Deep mutational scan, measured.
Amino acid sequence: TFYNFIMGFQNDNTPFGILAEHVSEDKAFPRLEERHQVIRAYVMSNYTDHQLIETTNRAISLYMANL
Rank of each mutant, 00 (worst) to 15 (best):
P30A: 03
T55A: 11
Y42K: 00
H50G: 10
D12M: 12
S45W: 06
Q10P: 05
N46E: 07
Y3A: 01
Q51G: 11
H22C: 08
E33A: 07
T14E: 04
T48Q: 11
A65G: 10
K27P: 14
L52H: 04
T55M: 07
A20C: 03
Y47N: 00
D49S: 08
S45Q: 14
Y63F: 12
T55W: 09
F16Y: 08
I39Q: 00
T14K: 03
I60D: 00
F2N: 00
M64A: 09
E54D: 10
H22K: 13
F29Y: 04
P15L: 11
N11T: 06
V43L: 07
A59P: 01
N66G: 13
V23K: 03
Q37I: 07
I18K: 14
R40K: 13
T48A: 10
S61Y: 11
A65I: 10
I6S: 01
N13I: 07
Q37M: 08
V43T: 04
G8M: 14
N46Y: 08
L32C: 12
E54Q: 08
P30G: 00
S61H: 12
F2K: 01
L62G: 03
V38F: 08
P15N: 09
S24Y: 13
Q10Y: 14
L32G: 12
E21G: 12
A20E: 02
N11Q: 08
S45N: 13
Q37G: 09
H36M: 12
N13P: 13
L62C: 09
A28Y: 14
N4Q: 12
Y47E: 00
D12T: 15
Q37V: 08
P30E: 01
Y42E: 01
D49N: 09
Y47I: 05
T56W: 13
T1F: 05
S45L: 12
E25N: 15
S24V: 07
N4A: 13
N66F: 15
E54N: 08
E54T: 07
F29E: 02
S45R: 10
L62M: 12
N11H: 13
G17H: 05
D26L: 06
D12G: 07
A65W: 11
N13E: 09
Q37P: 06
Q37L: 09
D26S: 02
R31N: 04
L32H: 14
T14I: 03
S45D: 14
L62K: 07
L52P: 01
